[in-house]
Amino acid sequence: MAVIIDKDTRVVVQGITGNQGSFHTAQMLAYGTQVVAGVNFDKAGQQVHGVPVVATVHEAVERYGANASIVFVPARFAKDAALEAIDAGVEVLVLIPEHIPTQDAMEIHAAARKAGVRVIGPNTFGIISPGKCKMGIMPNHIYTPGPVGVVARSGTLSYEIAYTLTRAGFGQSTVIGMGGDRVIGVNFIEALELFEQDPETKVIVMVGEIGGIQEELAAEYIKAHVTKPVVAFLAGRSAPPGKRMGHAGAIIEGNRGTYQSKVQALEAAGVAVASLPWEVADLVRQKLG
């Protein structure tokens, strides 16, 4: 078991002929992901790393049975691409691009909700169920299958944490990149719900950061609904207020979104919060104990 994607996921890559799309198609194939088709209207009929290029997402669904899409097109074309995938009936949509306008993101999520499509991102590194399927841009070699469900707002920081978990002997059931934008699809609460139900997942790791109230809301949800142990690391402890730290969502506004308020909320919900990234593995060891 894993959540959202597994070995039966059939992936279509939108923007497969671009630099990023082509490079990561090769990486996903190397990982064992079933990439069944790519989309580029002008290059239909060609192949990229042996993957057939088709004209539209509908065609990828009809001819190759695609049921999940990963989007690599430039941000300004992402809304069209995402709505196309939703219209074509995919079940999972991973939005890699950064800088998708927020109002476009709101329109994508509204359509996805009506169609029952699960959206990861935008501005995400994607999602991986180690040993089964990878839809994203994360390095292939740092993950291993196991009992830890990871959900993160940030990419590279989650690599760091997955890597320390792997080295300490703790594999991962699924690692979900929520994305660093203000408006995102799968969030902490949805990920916690999925991991709580997943029999393979024994402990959940949250990688959060300053800004917004997602961690605080997750803490309330954990208190009420999560029985599995949860470990967290939060970035931005030393960040000054009012400065946007790279991610659109990572900014302390007024007295909202501070490191302290998130740590307090999570600890009150019984979550073990690591003060250094590599302490996450120690806390996981204690929880699995």
């Binding site: 993160a152 707002r153 940030s154 990419g155 590279t156 920081l157 989650s158 690599y159 760091e160 660093g180 990688v207 950061e209 300053i210 690391f233 970035a235 931005g236 402890r237 030393s238 960040a239 730290m245 790279g246 991610h247 990572a250 003060s275 250094l276 990234p277």
Partner: peptide
């Protein structure tokens, strides 16, 4: 300098600690 916003933030935190 770090790569990725979360990693950059995490680096500042560790450095400060």
């Amino acid at each position: 300098m770090a790569n990725g916003a979360g990693m950059a933030m995490g680096t500042l935190d560790v450095l400060s600690l």
